[in-house]
């Protein structure tokens, strides 16, 4: 579609273009960038310049534990979503007609559903008298209902579920773009099903794998809703720590420092991998 870009001329003049851009630019500067700069300022000036909040974040074992847990959970969720998402993307890319539409619907419907509602579903499923505990007792695997909610395991399951579509879609779009002639050519040259996958499909799908993994990792790092509802105060992650400092402890400067650190890590990841992470692809499935 980019071929139109090569036709020059007939464009809006630079002045007109600036005028068209300016309402959005002003809104973003005043309502987005200024608050972010202000947040950074609040984390550093209390009221004199000091790094005390950052030292606290990196110095106290409790916070270090939360930082490590966040990285750990983000990593595990990335691996889980990859393991579960790749086969789905693979099948989805090979299908046609109503079957493809059905699989697509299965992936898109969760994406279109508020993460809040899906986390809520996990809260209900994992509660003391929830279906999971009932099933475990019914099967005789346990006598007493287990405490599932607010555990790390529950959080991993719920986050994997919530973020899975973000893994499937980038892999799917890359797989879909692979010419069907390539596997055929490989077969014609004597490769079996496994060899075709191993030597043709898999290597060609790696950009999608990287994009999806990075996307899920970055989203996990800053995820708030699911950790807040399913993880609870016992399984704090960075985002929920920020929330706690903001709303319960009213320690806004410290919260700002944590938020600034999270922002810095996110931006570093995005900047370092901006070629891999195709953000503009996410437009098709916002929500």
């Amino acid at each position: 579609m980019t071929r139109w870009r090569q036709v020059r001329g007939g464009r809006w003049s630079p002045l007109a273009a600036m005028l068209l851009l300016s309402p959005m630019a002003l809104l973003l500067i005043a309502g987005f960038f200024y608050p972010l700069v202000n947040l950074l300022g609040r984390s550093l000036w209390t009221p004199e310049f000091s790094l005390v909040h950052y030292e606290r974040l990196l110095g106290e074992p409790l916070y270090l534990l939360i930082l490590m847990r966040t990285l750990w959970i983000a990593g595990v969720v990335s691996v889980f979503t990859l393991l579960l998402g790749y086969p789905v993307a693979l099948v989805m890319a090979r299908l046609g007609g109503w079957k493809a539409a059905l699989v697509a619907a299965c992936v898109l419907v969760p994406l279109w559903t508020s993460a809040l509602v899906r986390s809520y579903a996990w809260v209900v499923l994992l509660q003391r008298n929830g279906i999971v505990n009932d099933t475990l007792r019914g099967l005789g695997l346990t006598e007493q209902p287990l405490r599932l909610i607010h555990t790390e395991g529950a959080l991993l399951v719920a986050m994997t579920h919530v973020l899975l579509p973000f893994m499937v879609l980038p892999i799917y779009s890359v797989l879909r773009a692979i010419s069907t002639d390539l596997p055929r050519a490989a077969a014609n040259l004597g490769a079996g099903t496994w060899s075709i996958f191993r030597h043709v499909t898999l290597p060609l799908s790696l950009p999608g794998v990287f994009a999806g993994t990075l996307m899920v990792f970055i989203l996990s790092l800053g995820f708030y809703i699911t950790p807040a509802l399913v993880g609870g105060p016992r399984t704090l992650m960075i985002a929920t720590l920020i929330g706690q400092q903001m709303t319960e402890l009213l320690n806004w400067s410290f919260a700002s420092a944590i938020a600034a650190a999270l922002l810095a890590v996110t931006l570093l990841l995005v900047a370092a991998f901006r070629r891999v992470l195709r953000i503009d692809q996410m437009a098709g499935h916002a929500g």
Partner: peptide, 14 residues
Amino acid sequence: IVPHIVVAVAMYLT
């Protein structure tokens, strides 16, 4: 790109 929790805190403060 910016995590929503960061946007939320920044916007709230301002």
